[in-house]
């Protein structure tokens, strides 16, 4: 049998860092599986929760913005369908952020006792939110049938936008969870960020209602690109290309910054947690 040699140094080389993640992929699967399993075992309503939440929020948005405030979708799709299509990626993003940011502190007993690439922990909590997303997506299909709304050929691009949502929430989640280890009261700020984000992200309205000159600036929010992309794929709404490119670029930068910050802080996790 080949003997594996491990070299421990103050700085981990780039190659070894990524190779180690590959080596620990089984632990990653099993931790993700644990998180999913526990999530649906612990709550009484379990999976139903990931249906109830987006549906109720969509109903409330429709009543308040559409019926009372007379806000409508400038595109073809019904207002409530537009809201739900935006609500899906948003809720995935919001869940991922809150789950990921608490993930390291929540697994402190593992981190102080066993070695594994720490990035596995926030990654598996984003994966868990992905399962919620998948369940809510079934409701979307029901809604599309109900409204007899057939997505065009764009729908084949949907996986790309799902990946983009994943990357955006993973990048920010990495940053938040590392900050959370260092500043333990940071977690109180996260619900606020999520709440605030809901209003500055085009969930209850279409980004087409914005004045043309602000649209590019607005796309600095990566979720603008994701939600517009979802609506483009599923509801055949027009995609604002420059804005999408900016959102995509910001998403990639966020991932890069998140990983870099996480790696810098990672060495101190066992000592600081």
């Amino acid at each position: 049998m080949e003997i594996e040699e491990i070299v421990i140094k103050p700085e981990v080389s780039e190659k070894n860092y990524w190779r180690d993640i590959w080596r620990y992929r089984e632990l990653f699967y099993i931790l993700s599986w644990r998180d999913i399993k526990v999530r649906y075992k612990q709550t009484v309503i379990g999976a139903a929760w990931s249906i109830i939440r987006p549906v109720l929020t969509t109903i409330i948005f429709t009543i308040i913005f559409n019926r009372i405030a007379r806000l409508d979708n400038p595109g073809n799709a019904p207002y409530s369908l537009m809201v739900f299509v935006g609500m899906l990626p948003w809720q995935f993003f919001a869940n991922s952020l809150s789950e990921a940011s608490n993930s390291l502190v929540g697994n402190a007993n593992l981190i102080t006792k066993v070695y594994f690439p720490r990035i596995i922990i926030p990654a598996s909590s984003v994966i868990t939110s992905m399962v919620d997303f998948a369940i809510s997506f079934l409701i979307l299909i029901v809604m599309l049938v109900w409204y007899r709304y057939l997505p065009g050929y764009h729908v084949v691009f949907l996986p790309l936008f799902i990946i983009m949502a994943f990357v955006a929430s993973f990048g920010i989640g990495l940053y938040l969870t590392a900050v959370n280890v260092k500043y333990r009261d940071f977690r109180y700020i996260i619900p606020f960020i999520v709440q605030f984000g809901l209003y500055i992200t085009p969930v209850g309205f279409s980004s087409h209602v914005l004045p043309e000159k602000y649209r590019l600036l607005y796309s600095i929010n990566p979720m603008v690109g994701v939600i517009d992309g979802f609506r483009w794929c599923l509801l055949n709404e027009e995609l604002y290309i420059p804005g999408f490119i900016l959102s995509l670029a910001i998403t990639i930068i966020l991932l890069y910054v998140g990983v870099a910050y996480f790696r810098r802080m990672e060495k101190g996790f066992a000592d600081n947690i």
Partner: peptide
């Protein structure tokens, strides 16, 4: 490998 050293090197085979 729970915590990295500040200096030095270890080889484990």
């Amino acid at each position: 490998r729970i915590t990295p050293p500040t200096a030095g090197e270890i080889a484990i085979r």
